[in-house]
């Protein structure tokens, strides 16, 4: 009986003393946290995906709070939440258009292979073996490192063996871009539909020989664009999304089908017919104009 009382007393007192020490410590070592921190946390995606480049959502919130990260740092949270965070921080969110990832390669089965790779099913691994199984050193290897990196089921290997993004599921966290050893995945505006699906910087024959769907830097798209929105930069066509109106003329003039959405045969023929008719009309008008002064 006596032992029980002593045990209860000793443990009770120990517990009490520890409790007291902790209570005092919580006051002494109290760290003042900014009340805005939990508010910002609420507007982040909470997936701890690391897409922002910080160690988890709480770290991202801390960086937003001290101003080292933009209010729109959390891409998966979207524009709405960025605006809410901006309100908390008292700054304007700026234009935060919805962006999605896009794979700049439509190679897959179009691209020719140098050898059959049978190693670990991983893109980084595949690039380590004699610089990868593809002839094209800019092509998507299709082993799906990006697919496994995607936490939103927005990334899949397409029907022709190269990776494609589902823009409706994509949150632009850029986890896939980090996983891609060939750096093919970039961020493009969701609203824009015309993208160059090739990254091959080689020109002419060098690009043509390695893949059926490569951009050879011929510049036809650049010549035909009415809005000055596509340019050949460094051997590959690049769309200027600020200027692109989405008319898709470039997709129809591209001899290599390197600009997505890839135009079908009918679309191309129709476009050629229209172009021809316009040229004839123009010639007729010019001829008429040349005739006109004589008649007077």
């Amino acid at each position: 009986m006596n032992t029980i009382v002593i045990a209860i007393l000793v443990l009770g007192i120990m517990g009490g003393v520890f409790g007291l020490i902790l209570a005092i410590a919580s006051k002494v070592f109290a760290v003042k946290t900014d009340p805005r921190l939990p508010e910002i946390m609420e507007h982040l995606a909470g997936a701890n995906c690391g897409g922002c480049g910080y160690a988890g959502c709480s770290d991202c919130a801390a960086h937003i709070l001290d101003g080292t990260a933009p209010v729109s740092a959390c891409a998966p949270a979207g524009a709405e939440n960025a605006a809410a965070i901006a309100e908390i921080m008292g700054v304007s969110a700026g234009s935060s258009e919805k962006m999605v990832a896009f794979v700049r390669c439509n190679g897959g089965t179009n691209a020719s292979k140098r050898f059959e790779y049978r190693g670990v099913k991983d893109c980084i691994g595949a690039t380590k073996v004699a610089a990868g199984p593809l002839d094209c050193s800019f092509g998507c290897l299709g082993f799906g490192s990006c697919v496994s990196a995607c936490m939103f089921d927005a990334m899949h290997i397409g029907p022709n063996g190269s990776a494609v993004v589902d823009p409706d599921k994509c949150t632009n966290c850029q986890a896939c871009a980090k996983a891609c050893p060939r750096k093919l995945i970039t961020s493009v505006p969701y609203a824009s539909k015309v993208h160059v699906a090739c990254s091959n910087k080689e020109k002419g024959k060098a690009a043509m020989s390695v893949c059926k769907a490569s951009c050879i830097g011929c510049g036809l798209c650049e010549k035909n664009c009415k809005f000055d929105a596509i340019h050949v930069v460094d051997g590959v066509a690049v769309v200027d999304y600020a200027k692109c109106k989405g008319c898709k003329i470039c997709t129809k003039v591209c001899p290599r089908d390197a600009i997505s959405p890839i135009a079908t045969k009918e679309e191309k023929d129709k476009f050629k017919a229209i172009q021809k008719a316009q040229a004839e009309k123009k010639a007729a008008a010019a001829a008429a104009a040349a005739e006109a002064p004589k008649a007077e």
Binding site: I6, A7, L11, F18, I21, A25
Partner: peptide, 30 residues
């Protein structure tokens, strides 16, 4: 001292829990 060796497990859990909490607070501050 009190002849309570049989209470070691319980007492140690108490000590460790309090210690970890204390260390956490201390580190957060300093």
């Amino acid at each position: 001292k009190f002849g309570l060796e049989f209470m070691q497990t319980v007492a140690f859990i108490l000590v460790i829990a309090a210690l970890v909490q204390f260390i956490e607070m201390f580190l957060q501050k300093s």
